[in-house]
Design a protein around this nucleic acid. Structure first.
Lengths: 193, 193
DNA sequence: TCGGCAAGCAAGTAGGTACTTGCATACCCA
DNA sequence: TGGGTATGCAAGTACCTACTTGCTTGCCGA
């Protein structure tokens, strides 16, 4: 049963590189250092194997939380944005391929959507809390701001690798996005608490 | 020479659905209502055909311009954002597939990047003009705001189809994004000019 | 010491893939 | 009227694909 994990990891790497059609059972077997037959005996079919890969990825994320009651928004949001940037960057090839394959393999949809949904709920809750606590302008369009922050994170994490020129430097991105986001919401800087 | 265009269009549709590997020459030929051999006689190879498809797409865009000297930012930006949303939505499947195939087929990279680059330059020029004219706060991070607007547009156009719940209604999106963007820049509303 | 189980190996099946070749038709322009 | 040019059709090549079958090997626990 050691080979099960080896195959899953190998399949993940190969799928990330080549997508479903390009991830041949032969390639995966070689990458896993395993006989091709073992792959069928363990997972039944190539589709089942790839599904298992995506399923595992979707489950293995412990969800990045934000405090229920905000205190220092910039200090709380910046690392959250940073972490989300890194996470999406990690799974970028998987994400892009499964997005392209949604029509042909609807099973890929859940993987492509789940993370996005969760992040959206998290940030939306947070901005609501900001408004309720009077730390953000009550009349601003908080939902839109949240959508824009998450959209920015996705766009950066996915597109930076092939259009690097347009994005802020890697080590400044999270802070800049956060600052601009808080500006949108009309949040004042916290000097000391 | 009529078939050349027919093949190009058909190849575009099939590629959009199935990606490079899934867009078989047989499928394309059937979709074009043309003999498979004609396809090879006209383009030489499948790769050359798909390259031609992407090349044509990349060239056929006349670039959406913004005024060199802003007068009413909201009125100028909203339709621009709307148009860009629609454009990216149109080529979404093409974009997603070519993004996934960049590693394997670097020729796809130009198509995936070109539009993004141009839009970025356009909006950056515009916000600079806003700042120069004193219509936007001079000390705000205009570049980051521009990146966020474009990132939002890309994210909406690409992800709305499979995570519709998180995005603002279709007919309000452009206006909301524009409003939030102008807020980020500290642009006051123009009442009448 | 033996039985079961995971895995490897070699070979095969049935189908799909890009691409080629040779030949038959049309059609248009000179 | 004749020749080039675009296209169709049938067949074939060489290779890749997922997946199967039958047999062998090695390990592990009773």
């Amino acid at each position: 049963m050691i080979s099960r994990e080896r195959i899953l990891e190998a399949a993940g790497r190969v799928y990330a590189k080549h997508g479903f059609r390009g991830a041949t059972t032969r390639l995966i077997a070689i990458e896993a250092g395993v006989n091709e037959v073992t792959l069928f005996r363990t997972f039944g079919s190539k589709s089942a194997l790839i599904d298992a890969v995506l399923m595992q990825q979707a489950v293995s994320k412990p969800a990045l939380e934000l405090p229920a009651t905000p205190i220092d928004p910039a200090a709380e949001l910046t690392p959250w944005v940073q972490m989300n940037l890194e996470r999406v960057r990690e799974i970028r090839p998987l994400l892009v391929h499964s997005m392209g394959e949604i029509d042909e393999r609807p099973e890929a949809a859940e993987f492509a959507c789940r993370g996005r949904q969760m992040v959206h709920e998290c940030i939306t809750r947070y901005v609501r809390a900001l408004q309720d606590n009077g730390m953000a302008d009550a009349e601003t369009d908080a939902d839109t701001a949240a959508v824009m922050l998450v959209g920015t994170v996705m766009s950066d994490a996915i597109a930076r690798s092939f259009v690097p020129a347009v994005y802020p430097p890697l080590d400044e991105a999270a802070e800049r996005y956060t600052t601009a986001f808080l500006r949108m919401l009309g949040v004042k800087k916290v000097v000391s608490t």
